[in-house]
Design a protein around this nucleic acid. Sequence first.
DNA 1: TTATAATATATAACCGGTTACATTTCAATA
DNA 2: TATTGAAATGTAACCGGTTATATATTATAA
Lengths: 330, 330
Amino acid sequence: MATIRDVAKKAGVSIATVSRVINNKGTIRKETKETVQQAIKDLAYTPNMVARGLSNRRSYAVALIVPTITNPFFPEMARAVEDIARENGYNVLLCNTDDRRDRLIDYIDSLSSQYVDGIIINSHNIMREDLQKLKSLGIPLVMMDRVLQDHDFTSITVKNREGGRMATEHLVEVGCKRIAHISGLEDTLNATHRMWGYRDVVSNMPWFDPSWIGMAEFSVQSGYQVAKELFSRHPEIDGIFCSNDLIAIGALKAAYEWGKKIPNELAIVGFDGIDMSRLTVPSITTIQQPIYHMGQLAMKELLKQIEERNNEPKKFELNVDFVLRESTMR
Amino acid sequence: MATIRDVAKKAGVSIATVSRVINNKGTIRKETKETVQQAIKDLAYTPNMVARGLSNRRSYAVALIVPTITNPFFPEMARAVEDIARENGYNVLLCNTDDRRDRLIDYIDSLSSQYVDGIIINSHNIMREDLQKLKSLGIPLVMMDRVLQDHDFTSITVKNREGGRMATEHLVEVGCKRIAHISGLEDTLNATHRMWGYRDVVSNMPWFDPSWIGMAEFSVQSGYQVAKELFSRHPEIDGIFCSNDLIAIGALKAAYEWGKKIPNELAIVGFDGIDMSRLTVPSITTIQQPIYHMGQLAMKELLKQIEERNNEPKKFELNVDFVLRESTMR
DNA sequence: TTATAATATATAACCGGTTACATTTCAATA
DNA sequence: TATTGAAATGTAACCGGTTATATATTATAA
């Protein structure tokens, strides 16, 4: 592999000049520029990104930290992040924490010694001290989806509470009399907000008490189990609002095994709008997050922070859409 | 951020000694070692990976090129790759080509500027000349799943033909009389092999002709459409072997809309064993690939090539497992 | 023609590690 | 005690870029 010194020698100039040509900085005579460009072409020279990174403390890479890449929500988002990153000459480091705090910490530590130019973080495991650490290192940061209660970073979420309300109201409208909720991971803010949306609608109903809320994780397996618990605790259940689509898919399966007909005996609403929710049988009514858009936005905001040093935190709270499908079409 | 020189100064030794302590190389007196380790701890020093990379001619990053990150097969694999990478101090660059050759080429070009230590590539769009380019640059490479016909690189696939045979034989065993096949992307070798497995079983049957084979892409949408075409072309159809699970999910949905009862009127077998195939209603009988294991293996083999300069190509052809589920449980 | 300013290019330090080679320390042997 | 070689540590070059500063070249004004 040719280095900048090879190019300089071949073109009969100094390495500084070559560097200037490559980066379009400073002033260069036209002929000099052409000579250098020819030498670059002849030697098929490409700058070594590691050396460049060491010198400018940049890597042209951003880290995308996700809790579980196997939840389809995240690949959809990752795709958007990656699209914008690529268009702007950045690479995306995939960091999957598997919902484990130790892994998150590992990543935060190792990323800071790698000149990662920015981080998009999506993890409920994050704590204020971690953010502080990244901030003190000056690493641009965008938080997504699962964010902390309050913070002074750019963050992107959706109107979770409103979405929860929309979902639950819809169940009421289609005639459900006993509506349960399966909440996602206990300590995530988005799950909590969705639950409050549910409570906004049902808390004044005479039958309601907290036993109608089941606690799950954001997974099919967990949704399946908790749905079954709810069925045996409340046989009269006729509607469930699930904190995400994976849980809804689990509930669907539980209902099928329990012999409950969907939507007539049990109506189900999910949240997220992952592609899979369209594709199940029956398809699942859901509250759609603008997943791709969120990923794009996150990456664009991160780029702004990186390239414009524009560091005032912005908090985005995007709208969600109600999507009617078979699981509530009575 | 503390540098190695800070540590050296604090411990009262030279930077060479610190480096030796960090990397466990050469000979160091026990007390010296302890002093240095204490200084490292005091300063919360972590070696700068970029500087280290420049010296070692490494970036400690590998690229994972996938065709469509939204097909759950790939996140499952990515998770495995990432697990092994992380354990060994490497980062994973996510490269999603969206099944487009222009993006693949972009990636190959940009990655070849000494940006990554190795590439795991999973794309049917790759051509011999691309591989040659990477080879001439000396970048370690592992091909996965969708590989070229013949090549001299390490590759990891499964016994696709045998899997196709197993799937089709199973449909015969449960009593299917007219078995169709929905094949995946036309020019991928794995789809072709699965189709040949199907043909091995049915080609001598009196009813068989090529109109029983539908060509789809590896997606739910495409499986759905092609299944409907098959239903109208061959109303007597009572079994389908689908080239992957996404296609099978599409077929499931088509059957549901068409009013065909599964499994009694139509039995369906998929391929891959993505998590989702367990979770549909009904669950889908499938040919399970060892997805996680394949990802691990790919990354381990890549590491061998990177760190041991062990470059003789190995071709792995892993076993698949038959998994019985509801979609064929008559 | 000479002084001066503007433009173009070169030199050398630096980013933060690794490592070949040189030097020092110290125990074992003559 | 002097000699020798192994063990421990230090010095300095190097990886391949960027860039501040110095220097050379050219254009402009006096």
